[in-house]
Structures are given as C-alpha cells and as structure tokens.
C-alpha cells in the first residue's frame, strides 16, 4: 500500500535533539546495566563489509559471533553476521548449528547505482546462498528528486525477491540529510513491505545518529498504530561503545516499549561494538576495568 505522503509529519530537528539529549540523561546502573549490555550483545549484526574480505576473515568473524567470549559461555550470541553476497555461503557453513543468522547486503550495496534487474539478481543470489536476512539500499538519488513511487516500487520488488528472507531497508540517512526526509523514507519503506528499516551502510558519514534513530522509531510506532504491523529498527555505523548502545536501547524502550527490546525487532549494525560490550560486561562481573588485549579482535 502506497503511503499518503501528504500526511507525512514534519520533524523539528531541535526538538528531536532535545528529546535525545534528555533520554541520554537516563542513568543505567547496576542490574539494569548488566541486563542492557547483554541485551545489546544479543542484538548485534556482527559485520564485515570490506573489499578485502576473504573466506578466512569471514570464518573467524563467525566464530566470534557464535562464542563472543569463551570465559563466559552463557553470554548470548550476536544476532547475525552481516557480509557481502559472495561470502554468504562461507558464513552459512561456519554458523551451521548455531542460532546466529546470516545477513547479506544486496542491491548494489552501498551505492545502489544499478538497474533493478541487477539488484533483483543480487538479492536472489544472496537468498539462494542461504542468507536469512537481506540488507538493501534505497536509491537516494531518486528519493531526493522526489520520485517516491520509484522507491516504493523498488522496495516492493526486492521484498518479493527475498521470499522468506527478512528484508532490512537501508535509507542511508547521511545522504538524506534532513529528518523530514528520514521520516518520509521510513514511511515509504514500511508501506512497501520492509521488515526492518536501517539507517546507514556505514560507508557514508554521518552514519547512525540518535536523532535519526529516534525519528525512525517514531515512524515505526505510528505505522504500528496505523496498521498493527511491527517493523524492526537497525541503526548501523558509528556505534562503537557500550555506553552508546545503552543510549540506543533507552530510545527504543521509551519510544516503542518493551515489545521492541529483542533481537527480533532491534539490531545494531556494528563490528567493534561487540568487544566494548564484552569488556563492560566483564567489568560488571569482576569489578575491574578491562583491557582490549584480553578480547579477540574478530
């Protein structure tokens, strides 16, 4: 169903920033901190998206995903690993018998500058290789010139190509620039069938920010009120510290509530975040500040 864009709500940037700043003042201590850190760990899409990625690198990444920190075997695993399509089969094999999903970027990631058929083939290939989740990019050029129906149709087509795989739509908010654009793109993506909406590829600066995430969470909430369908959220890029992750969780908790506080509805696209979360968890367990030499870099 194509959304009524006339109904798109204007966004006041300063108001959003003030809200974020107030949410950041939540003090997360003691049990709630431990609980939050573990929750965040379980929500990570542990990611490698580099031109130099190789089977060896991906296999090691997958080991880390399955067993983030051997001394604490009861810790949750991350939610998924996220790789390029040609690495999906490697990851799938490495994650066999685990509950870690394989996510693949597709649709001429990160620019999306290819014709639809290429994007569809890219998607189908990744799904055929065993991807559980597809992270697509929208065509920002078309969006910015106002060709919203193009965006809608393209997402709908990719969604169809995904079959049972679960579709995350990357808005690349750093290129959309305004929060009103972010809200509009979120509405289009959800109406076109996105299972998740995601901020960024990680290749453009700024990547995920809290104001952008808050606006997307509010869009999800309004869409849920309107249609009854829950859509997930994935901030990606630039989230490196445990403290930031907790701040994001506060955003989710106070915007969408407890239903969204699970890896089914919220993910972090990140790579170095995993280790900082682990260091903080171990610090909470031992009472001693940690050094990264005790944590594997994969």
């Amino acid at each position: 169903m194509y959304p009524d864009l006339k109904k798109t709500i204007p966004i006041d940037t300063i108001g959003v920033e003030e809200r974020v700043s107030r949410l950041n003042k939540r003090s997360i201590k003691k049990e709630s901190k431990v609980q939050g850190l573990k929750l965040a760990l379980s929500m990570i899409d542990h990611t490698t998206l580099e031109g130099k990625d190789s089977p060896g690198k991906v296999k090691q990444l997958c080991q880390k995903a399955k067993m983030p920190y051997a001394p604490l075997p009861d810790l949750p695993t991350v939610a998924a690993v996220c790789v390029y399509p040609n690495m999906v089969s490697i990851a799938k094999e490495a994650l066999k018998n685990s509950n870690v999903n394989v996510a693949s970027v597709a649709t001429a990631f990160p620019s999306g500058m290819a014709q639809l058929q290429v994007k569809l083939d890219d998607t189908k290939y990744a799904v055929d290789q065993g991807a559980d989740e597809i992270d697509m990019v929208i065509s920002r050029g078309e969006f910015l010139k106002g060709n919203y129906s193009f965006i809608f149709d393209e997402i709908a087509a990719i969604k169809e190509a995904c079959g049972d795989a679960h579709l995350k739509v990357i808005l690349e908010t750093g290129e959309l620039e305004t929060l009103t654009n972010v809200r509009k793109a979120s509405d289009i993506a959800m109406h076109a069938g996105a299972d998740f909406i995601k901020t960024s590829t990680g290749k453009i600066s700024p990547a995920a920010t809290q104001p952008v995430t808050l606006v997307m969470l509010e869009a999800i909430r309004d869409y849920y009120r309107e249609t009854g369908r829950m859509v997930g959220m994935k901030p990606a890029g630039g989230i490196r510290k445990a403290k930031q992750a907790l701040q994001y969780l506060v955003l989710v908790k106070e915007t969408l509530g407890a239903q969204w506080l699970s890896k089914d509805w919220f993910r972090f696209g990140a790579s170095s975040l995993t280790n900082d979360l682990l260091m903080q968890i171990v610090k909470q367990e031992t009472g001693v500040y940690q050094s990264n030499i005790y944590f594997s870099n994969d």
Binding site: R26, S27, I28, K29, K30, E31, S32, K33, Q35, G36, L39, S98, N99, V100, N101, D132, D164, H166, D195, R221, Y224, R225, G228, R229, M230, V231, G232, L249, K253, E254, L256, G257, A258, Q259, L261, D264, W265
Partner: peptide, 23 residues
C-alpha cells in the same frame, strides 16, 4: 534462529513498563 517477525495480536498497546527497568 529462523523465525521472522510477524504481526502481534491486535491489541495495539505499547508496553512501557514490564521489561528492562532502570535500577
């Protein structure tokens, strides 16, 4: 590891209280 998100029951209440409270 294989479930996909699906629509919740029709009760559209947002739940702000029951999970992950601040100490």
């Amino acid at each position: 590891g294989t479930t996909k998100p699906s629509s919740p029951n029709a009760d559209l209440k947002l739940d702000f209280s029951s999970f992950w409270d601040y100490s």
